[in-house]
Write a protein that binds this DNA or RNA. Structure first.
Length: 423
RNA sequence: GGUGGGAUGGCCGAGCGGUUUAAGGCACCGGUCUUGAAAACCGACGACGGGAAACCGUCCGCGAGUUCGAAUCUCGCUCCCACCGCCA
C-alpha cells in the first residue's frame, strides 16, 4: 500500500513512478473515490456528533426525572438516516481501499527505468564458466543417474512435478541444510512456519488480491487457505499487527519451506526439467529493519545469498532489475542468476528485494524508534532467496558434470553428502 | 467433534445500558527536589480517520442486531486456555 499522504501531496510523483513501471495510474478514478469517501465520512460524522449530543441530553433529562419523549422520537429518524449513511460510508471506504490494494509500489530512485528484462543492469559476474564439450542438461544427467524421475511424478500429480531418488534426494536435503546452516551462522534465526496461510497474510505481502491465479487455494470450512508460494508470506506476517521495539531491529529470519505456485500463464515456458515446478524448496531470508538502515540491509542480504553461490563455486551474475521487471511490492530488486551450461545462459536463482514500507502498511508492521518521544512508525521489510534449492540442485548437476556423465559434489557440500561424486 | 472458561490501551487490570471524556496500577516522558542519581511529589501519556484550526468521529477479539444511547444486553464467528472423544 502506498502512503496516502504521498498520493495527496504529490500525485505527480506517484504517476511518474508508476509510469516508469509501464503503468498508467487512473488519476480520475482515484480523485473521484477519494472525494466521495471524504464527503460521505464528513456527512456521517456530522450526524453522529449531533446524535451523541442529543443522546447525552436524553440521559440528563432522564436522570432529572424529566420528560424526554420528544427528543427520543426525533432521534429515531436520525438513527434511520445514520444507518443508511454508515452503509454508504463503508462502501466508499471499501471501494477506495480496493482501488489502492491493486496499485504496486513505487520504484526507488536508484532503479534503472526500463520496460522489461533487457533494461536490467548487470552489476557483477563471479566465477569461471566450466569448459564442457557437449554439456548435457540436468534432466538427462539426472535421469541417466537414476536420481530424477519426471515420468512417475507425472503419474502421481501431473506436469511440473518431480521425484528425487537416492543421492538426488540426498543432494536436495544436503543443499537445504547447508544453506540453512550458513544463513544461521550469518545471523538469521530459523523459523518453520505454516505452509498453509489465510488470505490476510497474502494480502500483507502483496500476493492478494491481484495474483490469486498464481496460488493453490484449498477449501477449508467456510473459507479457504492457500499453499504458500514462498516463505516470505508466513515469515513477513509473523509480526503483523505488532509494534516491535527499535532494539529488536534489524530482525532477521531464515526459513526452509516448500513453495507452491500454480504457474498459471506460464504455459510453454520451461516445460522441461526442474526450472519451473509447481512445488520446490527454498531457503528464504527475511529482514525487518528501521527505514534508515534498509538500503544497506538490501546489500547485506543480497551478499548472504551470493555467499551460498560462492561457497558452492557456482558461476553467477548479479543483476539490478529495471522498473518494468520488478515485482508488485518491491521498490528495488537484485536478481542472482546462476550459469546453466545446457542453456548457455544465466538463470534466476535468487531474488532479493527491498519493499520500503509498502508491505509494512499492508500488514500493519510497526516499530517504536529509539527516541522515546517518537511515535510508532512503519518499518521496512526485505527478503531474498538464499537460495532456491531446486534450481541450485540442477545448477550443481550441470556445472559439475563430468564427460562420463557422473557429477562431482562441490567441496563445501561433501560433508553433507558424505561422498564426492554421484555416478 | 463435545463441554466449560476467557479476549478491555505498551503491559496488568476494574467496569456489566447514560458523570467512562475507559477507574487504578506498572512502564515510558516532562518537571520539582538533588552535586548526580534513586525515592517522593506534580504533570503529561493510545491508535486510526476527518478538519487550516478549534474540534469532531471511530476503536474495549471480529461481524450483525436491540436501543434515543452499547465495553456493558442478544445472536453468529474467530482465537486462546482447560477437560472429554478421535487421531500422526
Amino acid at each position: 500500500m502506498l502512503d496516502l499522504q504521498l498520493l495527496r501531496q504529490d500525485l505527480d510523483a506517484v504517476v511518474r513512478g508508476l509510469g516508469n513501471r509501464g503503468l498508467s495510474f487512473d488519476r480520475d478514478t482515484f480523485e473521484r473515490l477519494e472525494q466521495s469517501r471524504k464527503r460521505v465520512i464528513q456527512e456521517a460524522e456530522t450526524l453522529k456528533a449531533e446524535r451523541n449530543k442529543v443522546s447525552e441530553e436524553v440521559g440528563r433529562l432522564k436522570r432529572e426525572k424529566q420528560d424526554a419523549e420528544h427528543l427520543i422520537l426525533q432521534q429515531r429518524e436520525v438513527g434511520e438516516k445514520l444507518k443508511a449513511l454508515e452503509h454508504a460510508e463503508k462502501e466508499a471506504e471499501t471501494a477506495f481501499r480496493d482501488f489502492l490494494a491493486l496499485v504496486p509500489n513505487l520504484p526507488h530512485e536508484s532503479v534503472p527505468v526500463g520496460k522489461d528484462e533487457h533494461a536490467n543492469t548487470e552489476i557483477k559476474r563471479w566465477g569461471t564458466l566450466p569448459t564442457l564439450d557437449k554439456p548435457l542438461d540436468h534432466t538427462e544427467l539426472g535421469t541417466r543417474l537414476g536420481i530424477l524421475d519426471f515420468d512417475r511424478a507425472a503419474k502421481l500429480s501431473g506436469a511440473r512435478f518431480s521425484v528425487l531418488k537416492g543421492l538426488g534426494a540426498k543432494l536436495e536435503r544436503s543443499l537445504a541444510t547447508f544453506m540453512l546452516d550458513r544463513q544461521i551462522a550469518a545471523g538469521y534465526t530459523e523459523v518453520i512456519p505454516p505452509y498453509l496461510v489465510n488470505a490476510e497474510s497474502l494480502y500483507g505481502t502483496g500476493q492478494l488480491p491481484k495474483f490469486e491465479q498464481d496460488l493453490f487455494k484449498m477449501p477449508h470450512g467456510e473459507s479457504s487457505l492457500y499453499l504458500i508460494p514462498t516463505a516470505e508470506v508466513p515469515v513477513t506476517n509473523l509480526y503483523r499487527d505488532e509494534v516491535l521495539s527499535a532494539d529488536q531491529l534489524p530482525l532477521r529470519h531464515c526459513a526452509l519451506t516448500p513453495c507452491f505456485r500454480s504457474e498459471a500463464g506460464s504455459y510453454g515456458k520451461d516445460t522441461k526439467g526442474l526450472v519451473r515446478q509447481h512445488q520446490f524448496h527454498k531457503v528464504e531470508l527475511v529482514s525487518f529493519c528501521a527505514p534508515e538502515e534498509a538500503e544497506a540491509e538490501l546489500e547485506r542480504l543480497t551478499g548472504h545469498a551470493e555467499a551460498i553461490l560462492e561457497a558452492l563455486e557456482l558461476p553467477y551474475r548479479k543483476v539490478l532489475l529495471c522498473t518494468g521487471d520488478m515485482g508488485f511490492s518491491s521498490q528495488k530488486t537484485y536478481d542472482l542468476e546462476v550459469w546453466l551450461p545446457s542453456q548457455n545462459t544465466y538463470r534466476e536463482i535468487s531474488s532479493c528485494s527491498w519493499f520500503g514500507d509498502f508491505q509494512a502498511r499492508r500488514a500493519n508492521l510497526k516499530y517504536k524508534p529509539a527516541d522515546p518521544k517518537a511515535k510508532a512508525a512503519f518499518l521496512h521489510t526485505l527478503n531474498g532467496s538464499g537460495l532456491a534449492v531446486g534450481r541450485t540442485w540442477l545448477a550443481v548437476l550441470e556445472n559439475y558434470q563430468q564427460p562420463d556423465g557422473s557429477v562431482r559434489i562441490p567441496a563445501a557440500l561433501q560433508p553433507y553428502m558424505g561422498c564426492a561424486e554421484i555416478r
